[in-house]
């Protein structure tokens, strides 16, 4: 209930309202791409290649004459889809690992956190490059790389929440009536630790979009003709002087979405009053 109230007040706040609108648009584009896109994303028309924005092609066309607007709308599906799916996975795994480490303590905690610290000390992009070197390029490799790259962050945050909550009297009270470990974790600790982790996850989606775009830009993520925003920008590099819109519009899509995610996340943090708890990792 508290979370819903906070969500509502974040949406109503000056920073939250415009960013929520942009995010709603991006998500709608991702979900309803086949109905919203004016052309199929892979439909080539070499005669109409590299055309300026016009009434027929609102954002112009690329070097194969494909409609850029349609490709950006489908790209939302790919970029957002990969970012949201892999961060969700990362949050879920991180939550379990962090909760177990924080609750059990001792050597389990030390081993898990040592591994987390090691992965955390490398940039996500490096981890991603190593994984793609092993798994080969492709959308699923990029997704796995994102999932693993952000895992340590969520595990650490969850762990610190759990350790703080373990000292609450209601946890001791639950043990004193005879609760087992699973009951204490599932009913008392994880629900109360959840909010900051989910908000951190939401903010990480912005980073993940950029990471996926970077991989896509180097041809390591989505493979042609599948459009991701990063891959779209990559194909625009060659025409940057001739047809700047081909790189400009996907770039704008990335920037606007990521800024909107960060602003909305910020508004949500204020509405939930959890800024201090997020620093605890």
């Amino acid at each position: 209930m508290a979370a819903l109230t906070a969500l509502r007040s974040a949406i109503a706040s000056p920073r939250g309202a415009p960013s929520a609108a942009i995010l709603a648009l991006a998500v709608t584009a991702a979900i309803a791409a086949p109905w919203l896109a004016p052309y199929p994303y892979a439909a080539q028309n070499l005669a109409g290649a590299v055309m300026e924005p016009s009434a027929a092609h609102l954002l112009g066309t690329d070097e194969f004459g494909r409609d850029l607007l349609s490709r950006i709308i489908y790209g939302a599906r790919v970029s957002l889809g990969v970012a949201v799916t892999s961060i969700s996975l990362s949050v879920m795994i991180g939550l379990v690992l962090g909760a177990v480490a924080g609750y059990l303590g001792g050597w389990v905690d030390r081993v898990l956190m040592a591994v987390a610290d090691v992965t955390w000390s490398f940039p996500e992009i490096l981890i991603a490059l190593v994984l793609i070197a092993i798994l080969g390029p492709g959308l699923s490799s990029a997704g796995i790389a994102i999932t693993i790259g952000y895992l340590a962050q969520f595990a650490r945050l969850t762990r610190s929440q759990i350790i703080a909550l373990k000292r609450e009297t209601y946890v001791e009270a639950a043990v004193s009536i005879g609760s087992g470990h699973m009951h204490v974790l599932a009913r008392h600790l994880i629900p109360n630790a959840l909010t900051p982790v989910i908000v951190a996850g939401m903010l990480a989606v912005g980073d993940a979009i950029i990471l996926e775009a970077t991989l896509g830009f180097f041809g390591l993520g989505a493979q042609p003709p599948l459009p991701s925003w990063g891959a779209l920008m990559s194909s625009g590099v060659a025409q940057i002087y001739l047809a700047p819109w081909v790189i400009l519009f996907p770039g704008l899509a990335i920037a606007v979405t990521v800024i909107a995610i960060n602003l909305f996340g910020d508004a949500l943090i204020d509405a939930l009053a959890i800024r201090n708890r997020l620093k605890e990792r």
Binding site: E168, T169, E172, A173, S176, G178, R187, N192
Partner: peptide, 22 residues
């Protein structure tokens, strides 16, 4: 031990934090 806890209970000092806020 958990079964035995049925027969022995505790009331805590701080009523403000002894109930899960959720």
């Amino acid at each position: 031990l958990r079964r035995q806890r049925r027969h022995m209970q505790m009331v805590f000092q701080d009523p403000y934090s002894s109930i899960n806020p959720r």
